[in-house]
Design a protein around this nucleic acid. Structure first.
Lengths: 136, 136
DNA sequence: TTATACTATGTGCAGGTTACACATAGATGC
DNA sequence: GCATCTATGTGTAACCTGCACATAGTATAA
């Protein structure tokens, strides 16, 4: 919030949250994209999200695990318990399925369309801002 | 969905909906931006949304009216019944307030950050897609 | 050996948003 | 009279998010 900004925060939708302004269900494609590189377990994916796109934004572990289970129900990923580890609690390793790759591709299409809407909005916003600042 | 794509649709988050992949609460800044041009009534704003950014995506009237009332509660817009019209049902005209302009600016900052996350995601997606297609 | 911290997976729940269906009503044209 | 367009709303089920909390294995240090 800019300093000096007052208002009824309880009603406000636009607040600094975990993600800038979150895209509905974004962690789903994010997890799938990470899994396309390598099979990984939930905790590792959490760290991957954090480091890759969501620097400075906390990632909720429950969302990660729930989303992974959801994706498995859908058949987009499959999981097995990792037996190779010698230290730490057991890990469930996830890998992407062919259906998951297709699903990810569909997500990418949709996100591209979303990005265009966003770009158009921001361009319109900046255009008006420039006019207000100094019309020729 | 690509043809031939099967799955448990009931669980699927990524489906063609009203907006490509919707940004949480996007109509709020969209309405404010439209109102920055001119005071308008709800129905006119609906048509504005439709024509401007959301071509081909239906706009839910209830979302528009509810959002407008929410913005008014927050003090971001103010409304008066339009007495100048001679035809049709009464119109409630909305105009943006100074608080609303500031709020819109904050939204724009957030949406810019969101757009960057999206761009990074799509770039990563395309990079992998290119490698899969034909590595040098 | 107790305590502490880190890794790792998970459940429960309140609060908020969305999409859909539905309600109401003035004006206009046939 | 009746349909249709304009215009403003309510009700609600389903869903997602963020937060708090539960559980447990391993390692390190006091």
């Amino acid at each position: 919030m800019p300093p000096g900004f007052r208002g009824h925060g309880r009603h406000r939708r636009c607040q600094r949250g975990p993600m800038p302004q979150r895209i509905d269900g974004f962690i789903e494609p994010a997890l799938l994209l990470l899994l396309r590189n390598d099979p990984t377990h939930g905790y590792g994916l959490m760290e991957g999200l954090q480091g890759l796109w969501l620097r400075d934004y906390p990632v909720d572990s429950s969302a990660v695990y729930r989303t992974l289970r959801g994706l498995e129900e859908m058949g987009m990923v499959s999981s097995t318990w990792d037996t190779d580890i010698t230290s730490g609690p057991p890990r469930r390793m996830y890998r992407i399925t062919p259906d998951g790759e297709e699903y990810l591709a569909h997500w990418a299409d949709d996100l591209r369309a979303t990005e265009e809407v966003l770009r158009a909005f921001l361009a319109a916003y900046d255009r008006r801002a420039a006019e207000a600042a100094g019309p020729p």
